[in-house]
């Protein structure tokens, strides 16, 4: 990260950068996690100097980033794959730790699932994968999106497709696991509720102790 870029970031923080600098800093921040961390630290200093520092200790950012990642994976209207650099979701959340473990297993299972075209026949799978993938598939051929691809030669569209299928696998895993009410399952419930015309459930959480909507909360939502 050049000194010039760091100085531009400082000016952007203060709203004193020109349009070119602003665009440059924001362009760089998409792919440069160190630049984003510098932005974070500089705001920490600002908040401390202004007496507002407390929130930086509370891990809210990690929680939010984890939830945003989930939302992006879940929602078909989430946009433009190349505009989605991998954000750092360094977090203490035990839920994410479990997700990482499950994801490895899911990736292995995925190779089998993809090659057997298992998902093509299912409405839910096609519906889930469809909207996001259709936009990002350069060939525009729906069937081609399920062709196996080596990860290290994958395009952005291939990676997004893989991510979507992993999430689908996790969702199925969560739905079929007795007793567990995972975040993924809840989000699925939330989306179905929204499709059925009910208000989406509030209070999403990204950590392991995800709360199922209680009857009283449901009542509140209907008010």
């Amino acid at each position: 990260m050049s000194e010039q870029l760091r100085e531009s970031l400082s000016a952007v923080m203060d709203g004193e950068a020109d349009a070119f600098e602003l665009r440059r800093v924001l362009d760089e921040s998409r792919s440069d996690s160190k630049l984003r961390e510098l932005w974070h630290r500089q705001h920490l200093v600002r908040d401390i100097l202004r007496g507002d520092e407390i929130v930086h200790q509370l891990d809210l950012r990690a929680r939010l980033l984890a939830e945003m990642e989930e939302l992006s994976s879940q929602e078909g209207d989430e946009p433009i794959p190349e505009a989605q650099p991998k954000l750092d979701t360094t977090t203490k959340s035990p839920w994410l730790g479990r997700l990482a473990g499950i994801a490895v297993a899911a990736t292995v299972a995925l190779l089998v699932i993809v090659s057997s075209d298992y998902l093509i026949g299912g409405d839910e799978g096609a519906g889930f994968v469809g909207p996001g993938i259709a936009q990002s598939n350069p060939s525009g051929a729906p069937s081609a999106v399920l062709a196996p691809v080596m990860y290290d030669v994958a395009t952005a569209a291939d990676r997004q497709r893989t991510d979507a299928l992993i999430i689908h696998h996790l969702q199925q895993n969560a739905l079929n696991r007795p007793g567990g009410f995972s975040f993924v399952r809840w989000v699925g419930f939330d989306r179905k509720s929204a499709q059925n015309g009910r208000a989406p459930q509030a209070g999403l959480r990204s950590e392991g102790g995800v709360q199922a909507p209680t009857p009283s909360q449901s009542k509140d939502n209907k008010r």
Partner: peptide, 14 residues
Amino acid sequence: DQAAFDLLFVRYQS
């Protein structure tokens, strides 16, 4: 651009 939302969040979280 998700990274842009991260920057907005850091700006206003406190």
